[in-house]
């Protein structure tokens, strides 16, 4: 078991957003998490990554048997948990190349690998950029500053490729992408999904799941996972909408 979420409750500014989420993710699995806006998908991803604005009020998260909530955000990342942001943050003045190198080395250090100096890292990052077909000119710019929506998402996948996480959570990585960018990002995600790793895709749309076939599809509403199924559940949602889930509000939660 890579990631085990048990009855997780979390709030922000005293508003309870997560109301008992349970989810088990094993190595080699791809999970898709769907649901309306405001259902708690992004909150779940941020709580896993350790965003300080959210407070866990009950339940827990274990990552490879370890209490994940006891770790700082940076320690979660160093030990292999990755969050691809829905809205990647622009950081003026901090060069993308340097940011990538410092974060990549933080992860390498934790894994007992040798840190890469400027030159070695530049070779490494240029090779990795090919996965997401990203122009090396973006290395010289400030982190995400002035990047288009698609470029920001490619930069997220580039970071994921460099950090080689064991659990990757991609929060609406497909939103705002045109068809070509979606294909490139999906290829990147597929290439990085290994038997030893797991991926949690948060998405609104079937189109990402056409490119990446999930093993499990979960539907969230009001801070809980209401239903779990396979890729057919996503297809049904696409055709029938979320109202259908509300109507049937079944407890077909065959947890993996």
């Amino acid at each position: 078991m890579l990631l085990s979420i048990e009855n997780l409750h979390a709030c922000v500014e005293e508003n309870e957003i997560l109301r008992g989420v349970s989810l088990q993710i094993r190595a080699g699995e791809i999970h898709a998490l769907m649901g309306r806006n405001g259902s708690g998908k992004s909150t779940l991803s941020k709580v896993i990554a350790g965003h300080p604005a959210y407070t866990v009020t009950a339940g827990g998260i274990h990552y490879r048997g370890q209490d994940l909530l006891a770790l700082s955000p940076e320690d979660r990342a160093r030990s292999g948990v990755f969050l691809g942001f829905q809205y990647p943050v622009e950081i003026p003045g901090v060069s993308n190349l340097e940011f990538l190198r410092v974060s990549c080395n933080a992860r390498r250090q934790r894994r007992g690998q040798e840190e890469l100096d400027t030159f070695a890292f530049e070779d490494h990052v240029r090779e990795t950029m090919a996965i997401v077909q990203m122009d090396p000119a973006f290395l010289e710019r400030s982190v995400n500053e002035g990047f288009s929506g698609g470029e920001k998402k490619r930069n997220e996948i580039l970071q994921m490729a460099l950090l080689e996480p064991l659990v990757a959570i991609l929060d609406e990585t497909d939103s705002g992408l045109d068809i070509d960018a979606l294909r490139i990002v999906a290829n990147g995600v597929r290439r990085l999904a290994l038997p030893t790793t797991a991926t949690l895709l948060i998405t609104h749309y079937q189109r990402l799941l056409d490119a990446i076939t999930p093993d499990f599809v979960h539907v969230m509403a009001e801070g809980r996972i209401l239903r779990t199924g396979d890729k057919d559940l996503a297809m049904a949602l696409e055709q029938r909408g979320y109202d259908w889930i509300d109507e049937t509000n079944g407890s077909d939660t065959r947890q993996p």
Partner: peptide, 19 residues
């Protein structure tokens, strides 16, 4: 901004100095 850097494995103090 701090959280974004931390979520990439960069410690809070180092992230603060980087910013």
């Amino acid at each position: 901004e701090l959280f974004y850097l931390q979520s990439r494995g960069i410690g809070r103090d180092q992230a603060s100095r980087l910013l």
